[in-house]
Design a protein around this nucleic acid. Structure first.
Lengths: 206, 206
DNA sequence: ACCTGAACACCGTTCAAGT
DNA sequence: ACCTGAACACCGTTCAAGT
């Protein structure tokens, strides 16, 4: 009969709210999409008042900033191309890993590269995580080119490679390109890479 | 003294509201960004009640759908690479035109490729305009490859080229890559294209 | 046919107050 | 220190009503 008795959402406060909010947000993100993820809904899901989140995150932007940072960390982890025989293989494998990550976490990927952070303002954590992911890419490209990571050629080539892969992932995720029904990520990435090669074989001839 | 006298917003109704709303929306889009463009604000700007728009567009999605379609039409128009000496030049010029369009209309570009239309649902007009823009790209690639537009090789190559250019534009627009201060669109596109070439010169050696 | 105002169900965010 | 409820300024959208 005491006031302690749980009332279906387990009373007053929960303990470590911050990570719980993050987890709930991550889960809801893939359900409702990056633009429609609301603080109020996330709070309610955790079983806490709508304003409780503001004691752990400055605002919505900071919450989704953490989400995006998490995404970049996971992406950076999956990039390393374990056992690749040669440069071509390493590049292809990185491209494939990148593409598969985006396909597996479409809403998170949209958030990571979406307009929410297009203005300069974004959490430091996010900026760091993003740079680290790009570093991973540069490392791979440096190996392929057999140059030092800091060389400007490496930077340019990494940037170009990132553009290509990001573009492919982005177009598929936003359903601008319809991903062919009967195919695997691997086959699709390979086939499109063939297309790119063909475009440049012509260029070399001129 | 009649009721006809204009009251600063010119009385009851305006005439051709639909295009006026579109125009106002287009203008506000670049100011507030794709996610924050609101029907209410657009309506107020035109000087009309918040609900008036619903007599001309089914909902917000349809309004911004028209906006995006307009974007694809303009993009398709700017792609044709008038006088290009050879294939490489044509490709580069298309890439540059595409990139410049995105840089000149960042919010519109974000809208065109943003999550708003990632679910299957989008206006027919938008779908058509998008396909037409892609057709333009295929035509250019077909010329470069000296093949028929309908060939699957052309489709794949166009898709790859689109991915690359879209990726580059998208990363710059979302400020993932910081566009170098002292540079022009032309120099930036050329430099990055060099990077891509370098990446593939290695591949050819394997 | 075209537009308005009130209303509903949502948002993000602030602030005084409670434990 | 951590959480809540009421409140404010916004949304999209519906609906009955006005011209």
């Amino acid at each position: 009969m005491t006031k302690h008795s749980p009332r279906s959402r387990d009373a007053y406060h929960v303990g470590n709210l911050a990570p719980q909010l993050l987890k709930a947000a991550r889960h809801m993100l893939e359900q409702v999409g990056p633009t429609k993820l609301s603080l109020r809904a996330v709070s309610e899901r955790v079983g806490v008042s709508a304003t409780a989140a503001y004691h752990h995150y400055a605002n919505r932007a900071e919450l989704i900033g953490h989400l995006a940072a998490q995404g970049f960390r996971e992406l950076a982890q999956e990039l390393p191309t374990h056992g690749s025989e040669n440069g071509l293989q390493a590049l292809r494998n990185a491209c494939l890993a990148y593409f598969s990550f985006a396909r597996a976490n479409p809403a998170l990927y949209q958030l990571m590269f979406g307009p929410e952070f297009a203005d300069g303002q974004m959490p430091l954590e996010l900026h760091g995580a993003r740079d680290q992911a790009f570093s991973e890419l540069r490392r791979i490209v440096a190996e392929v080119l057999e140059l030092d990571m800091e060389q400007p050629e490496v930077r340019r080539a990494a940037l170009a490679g990132w553009s290509y892969t990001h573009g492919l992932a982005s177009l598929v995720i936003h359903r601008v390109l319809i991903f062919p029904a009967g195919t695997t990520d691997q086959r699709f990435v390979d086939s499109t890479l063939q297309g790119l090669l063909q475009l440049f074989q012509v260029e070399k001839g001129t």
